[in-house]
């Protein structure tokens, strides 16, 4: 069973990008036939195991792009492939895990039961579910809290449960929309640290939406800088830490880190592509 899976599955996925977006656009039709051009001409490729952040001012379409990849909305133009499949097929095949800004836990389920929810929905047996949940609870460091309920957890703990839940089915792709947006700075840095560790342990590719430049630089291999009206990609900054540099807490004082922060900031604040200027308010 595992053998056949091993021989068939990895070969294409090693060649195929995790995400491939080709000149995708999204137009929302709002009331009275008015249209909002939320995204236009988006081209983006994410390699397997790569960590990519989306950053940009509010309303530039970061969430929309993530939702297109997740097949929670559909693109009005262009093509979006996830592991070589259409976004819809990828969703049906459970190719990704997702986490939002609010944890979105079910209040009547314990930590463990929340993490087990996707497994339960896909008919995984009770014992196997419990074993997987146990692994994940340990991974996110909530061993003592497995039978607590969401209203008994802090915001940071809830977010960890949400991340554990998104990892439940061992997806090769994680989609995260400002998952640490509501956390305080200290918790946030600790969560970033843990996310780095979790990603290196699971080897998943990540698309991570954030408003924080340091957060994007700390976590990412590449930072995608976007700008609004219409939402588009203005620059993609590669974060080059140099060989052998690990993403640990000391990275925050590393010159390469500062260089990355500066590069992203310039891309955000600069006035390159926009003919009308006024990139940031």
């Amino acid at each position: 069973m595992t053998d056949t899976a091993r021989t068939t599955a990895p070969t294409p996925s090693e060649v195929l990008p995790a995400i491939s977006v080709r000149s995708a656009g999204k137009i929302f039709t709002v009331a009275k036939g008015a249209e909002v051009q939320a995204l236009t001409g988006i081209d983006l490729t994410v390699a397997p195991g790569e960590f990519v952040s989306l950053i940009g001012p509010s309303g530039c379409g970061k969430s929309t792009l993530l939702r297109l990849i997740a097949d929670l909305d559909s693109a009005t133009s262009g093509e979006i492939l996830v592991f070589g499949k259409t976004a819809r097929q990828a969703r049906l095949d459970q190719e990704y895990g997702i986490a939002f800004q609010s944890a979105g836990l079910l209040p009547w389920r314990s930590v463990q039961a929340n993490i087990e929810l996707p497994l339960e929905l896909h008919g995984v047996g009770k014992a196997e579910r419990a074993a997987r949940a146990e692994e994940l609870i340990e991974l996110v460091g909530l061993t003592d809290f497995r039978s607590r309920f969401p209203d008994q957890l802090s915001g940071g703990m809830q977010q960890r449960v949400a991340i554990a839940r998104s990892l439940a089915e061992r997806p090769k792709l994680l989609l995260m929309d400002e998952p640490f947006g509501a956390l305080d700075e200290m918790t946030r840095e600790r969560m970033q640290q843990e996310l780095v560790r979790i990603c290196s342990e699971t080897g998943a590719a990540v698309v991570f939406v954030t408003h924080s430049i340091p957060e994007a630089v700390f976590l990412s291999d590449r930072v995608v800088v976007m700008s609004p009206r219409p939402g588009r990609i203005v620059d993609i900054v590669s974060v080059d830490l140099g060989p052998g540099t690990s993403r640990s807490d000391s990275l925050r004082e590393n010159p390469a880190f500062f260089a990355g922060v500066t590069a992203v900031r310039e891309a955000l604040h600069g006035s390159p592509v926009a003919p009308l200027g006024a990139d940031l308010r």
Partner: peptide, 26 residues
């Protein structure tokens, strides 16, 4: 149920009945 919960069930590819059972009823 909040939109986020409904969309979560959608990402799990849970149909109407399963969404009813696991989300809307409780």
């Amino acid at each position: 149920p909040d939109t986020i919960h409904v969309e979560l069930m959608r990402t799990y590819n849970a149909g109407w009945f399963r969404t009813l059972l696991k989300l809307r009823l409780p």
